Simulated scan of single mutants.
Amino acid sequence: MCIGIPGKVLSVGDDIHQMAEVEVCGVKRGVNIMLVCEGDPAALVGQWVLVHVGFAMSIIDEAEARETLIALEQIGGLEPVQAG
């Protein structure tokens, strides 16, 4: 079983071959968006994605992202989630 951690896309490059900057649990990191980008990478800015081993695996909505973060916090996998 693999666990994806929700992250919010902050910025992207000019094409899918460049890493996007994604905030995951308060930490900004480079993430590959090739698996979720179907058009202009700029359309992903502000979107939530599930991140696993440096790859965005799927796009999710904010409610699902928050629910996943809370569930991971409850099982001890994350520090407490900040509101906002």
Rank of each mutant, 00 (worst) to 15 (best):
L50V: 02
A42L: 00
L35W: 03
C2N: 15
C25Y: 07
E79T: 14
S11M: 04
H17P: 02
E21M: 13
L10V: 06
V22W: 02
E23I: 10
M34Q: 14
V27P: 00
P80T: 07
D40C: 08
D40M: 08
N32H: 13
A42S: 04
V24C: 03
G39N: 14
V9W: 08
G26M: 09
K8A: 01
G7S: 04
D15S: 11
P80W: 00
I3Q: 10
E38P: 03
G54C: 06
A65I: 10
G26N: 06
R29T: 07
V51S: 11
A20C: 10
I70S: 04
I33V: 06
K28E: 10
G84Y: 06
C25L: 11
G54D: 10
M19L: 14
F55K: 08
G4D: 14
L35F: 05
V45D: 02
V36R: 04
L69Y: 01
G76W: 13
Q18G: 08
L50D: 01
G30H: 04
T68S: 10
F55R: 08
V53C: 10
S11Q: 08
L72K: 15
K28M: 04
F55W: 14
M57G: 00
L78W: 12
T68W: 00
M19T: 08
V49M: 14
M1G: 15
Q47N: 10
C37Q: 04
